[in-house]
Nucleic acid binder design. Structure first.
Lengths: 241, 241
DNA sequence: AAATGTTATCTGGTATGCAAGAGCGCATAA
DNA sequence: TTATGCGCTCTTGCATACCAGATAACATTT
């Protein structure tokens, strides 16, 4: 702040967007949580691009806190595979490789398949969740018509986040959410290079109706097929980069 | 150390086994890692039973380090669902509920099913891993004949850890390992109340031969069926407690 | 004796201080 | 001019210090 002209290449990216980071800190739960959310959000939406590198102390200054909570948040992000700390080099935002996405989507196929199955086991209990997934899907359709790729991606994310967070299994929900984060980030990067993804809307509807019908196997199969197909597209897109 | 007779109820359990904790600290990677491993191992094998409660500072004393690394390790364990920190009460080892095990086994069904499928996609590449699983299964059989329940459990664990760690997907491996940890802990508690589990050996062999035959769907189905059945038994055993 | 208010203490979260090691640059020598 | 070696700096990991808030015990009053 005292030196807004500092031209160090390693720190410029953070200095360019100080407001973005600070405004993301609103919750008062704990500073570690604040730092975690702020950094993660910035990484996921591309504000902090792959390869971006910064030192804990500087991040702490940006977020108006000491190194301690930043340190813990960074370690958490490292465990999730979003950053790595290079000894005596600083924290580095990891690039997304095709191999990473293969892994992420394999996990998502397994977990969302299970989540869809669990929801289908109690369709009546899950009605509110199903409605949310329907809303998200409808919004995807609207966004597609308006060729609003960002809006489509946001709604698609919403569908998948509801699917796993409402399945009733908190452990599954939490792990799958971490994978969805990574998928979201990959998509943010590749979005501009892709065709309009028309198939998703229909596939989501198949999943929804199987869940509502209590067709556990059908719901699972549909969820798996959807992620498997999407997986191929994303990975091709990443390989083109 | 200076006060081996301290009778505080909240700290006695740790004081009783100082050697157990300290001898687990051998790696020199980082103190956080040391603390994490020591605490986790003690929780998994029952040295620190559910309900056990201690204060970070005291744990740090036991492990001959400061609070900082202990604090970080505890937070990690909390994320994994093994402990929780009660504000101004200390760190508490969580009990294992039937609901927890339902969740854990649902995740394992999904992930080990996927892992078996991935292995079956490249049986030749996986030959070394398959051998390890065979060894583990043979050892289970021997342990059963000798009615060595502990030995059986150890070998069974080994089988499942190899299955997920060798599947080629590191994210899946890491997440599944966390779930296997919890399953292991639950089994340690319930082992004494169970019948000799004869079915497992045969089921493992089915999984192995499907993988070796490159039968992806069969491997997946067999792995799922195995965990699904075992799930029922463990959960019944826990509910009896 | 019981209930309530006050205060001392204890804990986790956070900040700051300290040390060790690796990289980078500069100086010196060939 | 180039290569090599020494030392300074910079960064993380760990230790220590500090603080706010909640609990629990004690005292006081009814």
């Amino acid at each position: 702040m005292a030196d807004p002209t500092s031209p160090h290449p390693g720190t410029s990216a953070l200095r360019v967007y100080p407001h973005d980071l600070e405004t993301r800190v609103d919750r008062k739960e704990s500073l570690v949580e604040d730092a975690y959310r702020a950094l993660k959000a910035s990484i996921l939406d591309g504000t902090l691009p792959a390869g971006y590198q910064a030192v804990e102390h500087r991040i702490a200054d940006q977020l108006n806190m000491s190194r301690t909570p930043v340190h813990e948040a960074v370690i958490r992000l490292q465990h999730e595979g979003l950053v790595r700390v290079l000894p005596r080099r600083g924290v580095q935002v990891l690039p997304i490789s095709a191999i990473d996405m293969v892994e992420v989507y394999q996990v998502l196929v397994a977990m969302e398949g299970m989540a869809a199955m669990l929801l289908a086991q109690h369709p009546e209990r899950a009605e509110a969740s199903i409605r949310m997934m329907e809303d998200a899907t409808n919004q995807m359709e609207r966004a597609l018509k308006g060729e609003d790729l960002r809006g489509w991606a946001r709604a698609d994310d919403q569908f998948h986040r509801v699917l796993v967070s409402e399945c009733g299994n908190q452990r599954l929900a939490k792990m799958a959410a971490t994978m969805v984060d990574q998928a979201q980030r990959a998509r943010t990067v590749t979005l501009q290079f892709r065709q309009l993804p028309h198939a998703s809307v229909q596939e989501h509807r198949v999943i929804i109706s199987a869940i509502r019908a209590g067709d556990t196997l059908g719901a699972r199969t549909a969820a798996e097929a959807h992620r498997t197909r999407a997986s191929g597209e994303i990975i091709k897109a990443i390989e083109r980069l």
